[in-house]
Simulated scan of single mutants.
Amino acid sequence: IHQGIMERGSKTTSDSYVLWPARIGPYTLVMGRHYKNMDTSSLPFSYLIESNDESILVPGINLRSVGTIRDAQKWPLRDRRKDPEKLDQVNFNLLSPYTIRKMFEGRELLRKLKSVSGPVSGSYSYNNMVIRGNSLERGIQMYQTGINKFLGNSLIKRLEKTEFTSNSELQKRLKPDHTMGKGEWVDLAGLIAPVKAVNKLLDDIENGVISTVGGVAEAFIRMHDSYYKWEWTWACERIEQEEGKPVKEFTAADIIRITERWKKSVIDLDKMLYEDARKEFTLSSMTGFGIDGGEEIKKLDFEQVRGAFESNGVVSAIQDHIGQKDALGNELIERMSRIKS
């Protein structure tokens, strides 16, 4: 039996082929025909492209694809369940401890490949795939950008709507309320949860603490409802690792520095998405329009069907997002600036 896994958010293009067994990491786009077994699970948000019978991996590039954002927006909208009590607990978050952990893995993996093969290598081999040198460098940068964005999001959420008069108050707020959330997270058919929480559920079933299907369903609901509380526990641990010190030693200056880094990552990523969206409005994209006229008719026909670039919903959302996040970051920086050392 040949079995393969396409993790959440992954897609295949027309006429694509993947030889099983294989594992494709989250939010990866597979193009072409791939005749070797491969595993990209530690390199999420990638393109897997076939060229001259070679499998070319472009790590992290899907983070800047407007198609990825469009998918993330449409999946929740397609959830037409009306009952307030959902039987399936589905987390639609694009960035989560599950995907960000893989970005950490991907960043370290690419750094290791670079270290082993040398920084000037033109290409790198990994799991029957080829990673070009420039793609590796860009992949490290893209994963770092995604990591900065997620950790900054979690930090800002943790500190929102709270005034602090001292660093000790700040440190107290930064301390997680729960121990659950540390370590690895998994995707249980849409439910994103810590492995420890899943193992506890299994232990409770084996020990008879939970003995009914309803009890299992309630446990899944509790996991889903606890996501954001547990997310901060995980994010806090990662922030400490990135900063090289525990949050009990953080000061307002640390928060300002992390927030500035977050702002840059968010805005840089949004600008990349904006430029990617522009590609959908180039002359080549209009080729199939205006069957009975010249260039002007073609352009008008295209705009009637697809709309103008400036008024496109995704483009407008990106522009609004840049302004909102910039203001959000500035507000936190201003609050931190009022804390006396």
Rank of each mutant, 00 (worst) to 15 (best):
K279C: 03
R107C: 05
W234L: 03
A235H: 05
I322N: 10
E242G: 00
G60Q: 13
S121Q: 08
V305P: 01
G32S: 12
A189N: 15
K102T: 01
L77Q: 15
T13W: 11
D39A: 02
S46A: 13
S226C: 05
D320F: 11
Q324H: 12
N312W: 07
Q319C: 09
S10Q: 03
S115K: 14
I49S: 04
K229P: 00
A317Y: 13
E280T: 03
I322Q: 15
R338C: 09
K340F: 03
T179D: 15
N52G: 00
R261L: 10
N199W: 12
T251L: 09
V90I: 15
I147Q: 07
N134D: 15
D270E: 13
I221M: 01
G244S: 07
K248R: 11
L170R: 04
R64Q: 15
Q241T: 02
I297A: 14
R23P: 00
S341H: 09
M336V: 11
Y227H: 11
L201F: 08
G329P: 00
D203C: 01
R8M: 08
T28P: 01
E303Y: 11
T233D: 08
L113N: 08
R138D: 15
D320E: 15
P84T: 06
A22S: 08
Q144D: 15
L63T: 04
E243V: 04
K340I: 03
I156W: 07
Y47T: 00
L109S: 07
Y17M: 05
R238V: 02
D39Q: 02
A189P: 00
I5W: 13
T165R: 10
M223E: 13
N128W: 07
P246F: 09
P97D: 08
D187Y: 02
F45W: 08
S166R: 05
D204I: 03
E303I: 08
A72M: 06
M142S: 12
M180Q: 10
T13D: 14
D15A: 07
N148I: 02
Q171R: 13
S41R: 06
R335E: 13
Y126Q: 03
H321F: 14
Q144I: 00
S14I: 03
